[in-house]
Every structure is written in structure tokens, then in C-alpha cells.
Design a protein around this nucleic acid. Structure first.
Lengths: 224, 224
DNA sequence: AGTATTCAGTTAAAATTCAGCTAACCGATT
DNA sequence: AATCGGTTAGCTGAATTTTAACTGAATACT
């Protein structure tokens, strides 16, 4: 595991580095923000540990810039005690975790391990069918470069359809997966939602993507 | 996407439920093991999130029993910190992932997403006879690369024939299997449907696949 | 104001029946 | 063994009935 540690206080930096190396991690240290940023961009680290107060460029800036440049390396931020607002802002800027100084070394190790273990694919999940795409994490739906606004239920329904492309889904199945069991819904509600979806994602396009299969249900896909 | 959360501590359960709902998931909560098990069996969930320590029936038992009953719904187990042996046992019992409490909510979301994304049993059931194929899940019928549109009853009838290739099926048998018991239908109705089917899947092809066996019934298959 | 759900009337497609037709089967006749 | 009716099972075109799905608008919720 390869770690980048950005920390300007040499004594602290050396002690952390030593500790991590005992855990058999490879540690690079940068002593100012600019050096840290450059290393983070050029090298492939598994985790970046970032002090907030830094000469050159502060931790939040680094964080922000890295994310803007599509660097998705997990970032752990070190803050001085009580800088609560910084924590919040750090998470907003794309940091993955934070730790307050002073900390127990065990805690640091544990958190780094957690970040390493974390499934990297928190990347946006994109479902695609033909020229229609749905971004699960950003809630965006696009057909043919046109952005389409959906309500929450419409989105959920479309997501369910798109996770089963070209499969027939009965109204029953749809009711069971898109709604929870306490809420009981008339089958007609599904019909109404299908209509709303069609108005938004099919109307005005060359061909429809939502197909009715009378007696069985609906399916999504290009009809041949 | 529909999630079942089995967790006895109401406060925790509610907070998780709320969080998941913000991610546009439909969440059912069960507060003890037995209720959880029953729901898991009766409903169709996309993912089950299971606390280990539960009144009634513990998480491992639920997991075990579900798998024994051929429920293949992905299961994510929540364990208290340090119950490492439980994790191992959980995975043995058929769980798909585990997460240690306390966890970052992001982490939970990410893991649930990963389980949903996981290629489910997308087994398209394909029936084939000669150059004729029928896809039960997508409702598609193809002969010789030509896509054939069928009505619901036509499809059901063809499916019945194709599940018994080269067998003679009497009108009586067909009436009993393609129609429900109560509905009584004239034998002529079957004849009419056979005609409709022939018009769609035999007409215009080199040789017919549906054979009449006078006095006995019909069969499907290449006639020798 | 936007979303979720229901309602009630309409539309369109599929299901079923009907009535006349066709063709296979079979015994009687040549 | 070829031909003739008579009988019946199966075929067919079209009419009729039934029903699934669609739709515009109302209502309730937030």
C-alpha cells in the first residue's frame, strides 16, 4: 500500500511515516502544499493523508483541485482540535474522512485501512440503453444530449426498468420493487407513471424505448 | 430498488431507513428475526441488510435458512466491531458482504449499490425448436432471424407446445394448461389459436412446425 | 408549486364465438 | 382397387364480447 503524507511539521511527519512503515506501508512525505499536490497528481497512491494547515496551498485547496482533476484517490484530512467547520467543508470538497489532532496512532491506521478497503467504485454508476443514460448517483437522465428532469418515483421506476433491459416486468413486479410493501398501490398507478415517463423520455424522439407487452407488462429497450 | 432492513434497535433502524430513502430506495424494516425472515421469503427484495444480533432469530440463522430455501437475494450483514469470527461464519452461511459497526453511511450505500449492481441471475430462459426460438423473459419469438409478434394467449400456447416438443397434446390438455380451470372454452377456440399461430410462425417458411394429428391433437416439431 | 395517487370514461387490442366450409376417414358399391 | 357418399374433425373469415391499457382531470399530500 502506498501512502502520501502531506504535513509541514517535520517532527510529526517523520513520526507518522515511521509508524506507517511499521505497518508495511510505503510512505512518501511532502512538506508543503504545492509539492504535495504535484505528487498526488503524478503518482498513484492508495490513500492521501492531508494536513489542513500548510504553506503554499492548504489542504482544502489541494482536495478541491484534485477532485476537479478527476483524481479519485481516497483522502484523509488531519485537522487541529475544534476546527469543526473545516471538517464539514473538507467533506464537501471531496475528502473521504477526517481525524482530529491529536489522535491515537491506532486510530489513524484503522481509518487508512478503512479507506483502502472501501470499494473504489463509488464512481458514478451509469446505466445505458441506446441513447438513454441514467446516472444513479447524480440523479441525471439524458436522452440524446437532452437533459430530462424526473420526479423521484419516475426516476426509481426508470432505474428499475433499466436494470432489467429487454426483460418483461409485470405491473406486480414493478409495484413490489419500486414501492415498499406497506404502501399498497393500484396497478393503475404504475400505468400512470409509465405514461409520465413516456412523455418525458420517449415523446418527441424518433422511436420509443418503453414497450407495452399487453397481458404481461412493460419492458425497456429499442424495439426491433 | 427495494431493500429489507432487519435491525432491532429502532433508533438505528429509522436513521438508516431515512438515509436509504434519501437515496431513492424503498425500504422495509423488520424489528426482529422472525418478522425479517418472513418478509424476506414473501417479498422480492433487491438487497437484504441484516443485523447479526436480533431477538427471535439471529442474522446467521436467517441467512442460512434463506439460502436453504433457495432465496438468492444478496445479503449484507452488519456486525459489531471485532466480531471477526462472525464475519467469516456469515460468509459461509451465504452472506454476500459484511460491514462493521459503526460505519460511515457512505460506505453502507456504496456496498448496497455494489450488491445491486452485481449480475443477478439474469438467466434468460430460451426455448428452441429447429429454427424457432422463444425467450420467456423478454417475450421474444424468432424464427429464422425474423421477429414474430404474438398476443398474450398465442404466446402462452406456443410456450406450452414448445415445452413439450414432439409430444401430441390434445385439445383438452391445451385447454387445461393454457386457460385456467374455471374458464370454459370451446374446443374451437384452441383451433382458432392454432390457426393464428400458424399464420405467424409457419406461413411463408419452408416447412411447418405445428402438426395436426387428426383425432388426437397437435404437436410441435420438424416433421420427419 | 410540484409530486403522488386515484378516479372514471375512452380506446384499442385481444379473446371468444359463430356459421359455413374443407378435407380426412371409412364402409359400401362397382 | 378405384369411386362414391356420409360423417365428422378440423379449418377459416368475420362478428361479437371482453378486457387491458391509456388518458384527462380531480384530489391529496408536502
Amino acid at each position: 500500500m502506498k501512502i502520501l503524507l502531506v504535513e509541514d511539521e517535520h517532527r510529526i511527519a517523520q513520526s507518522i511515516k515511521k509508524g506507517l512503515e511499521q505497518e508495511r506501508m510505503a510512505v512518501d512525505v511532502a512538506y508543503d502544499g504545492i509539492e504535495g499536490y504535484d505528487l498526488a497528481i503524478d503518482e498513484e497512491y492508495d490513500v492521501i493523508v492531508l494536513d489542513l494547515m500548510l504553506p503554499g496551498m492548504n489542504g482544502l485547496e489541494i482536495c478541491d483541485k484534485l477532485r476537479q482533476n478527476k483524481k479519485e484517490t481516497p483522502i484523509l484530512i488531519l485537522t487541529a482540535r475544534g476546527q469543526v467547520e473545516d471538517k464539514v467543508e473538507g467533506l464537501n470538497k471531496g475528502a473521504d474522512d477526517y481525524l482530529t489532532k491529536p489522535f491515537a496512532f491506532e486510530e489513524l491506521i484503522a481509518r487508512i485501512r478503512a479507506l483502502i478497503r472501501r470499494p473504489q467504485n463509488i464512481k458514478d454508476e451509469l446505466l445505458k440503453i441506446d441513447e438513454l443514460s441514467l446516472n444513479v448517483s447524480s440523479f441525471e437522465v439524458i436522452r440524446n444530449k437532452k437533459i430530462i428532469k424526473l420526479s423521484s418515483k419516475e426516476f426509481t421506476l426508470l432505474e428499475f426498468l433499466m436494470r432489467h433491459p429487454n426483460q418483461i416486468l409485470s405491473k406486480e413486479q414493478i409495484m413490489n420493487h419500486v414501492w415498499s410493501y406497506e404502501t399498497d398501490i393500484l396497478p393503475n398507478t404504475v400505468e400512470v407513471y409509465i405514461r409520465n415517463l413516456r412523455n418525458k423520455i420517449d415523446k418527441g424522439f424518433k422511436y420509443p424505448l418503453i414497450q407495452t407487452v399487453r397481458g404481461f407488462g412493460y419492458k425497456i429497450g429499442k424495439n426491433v
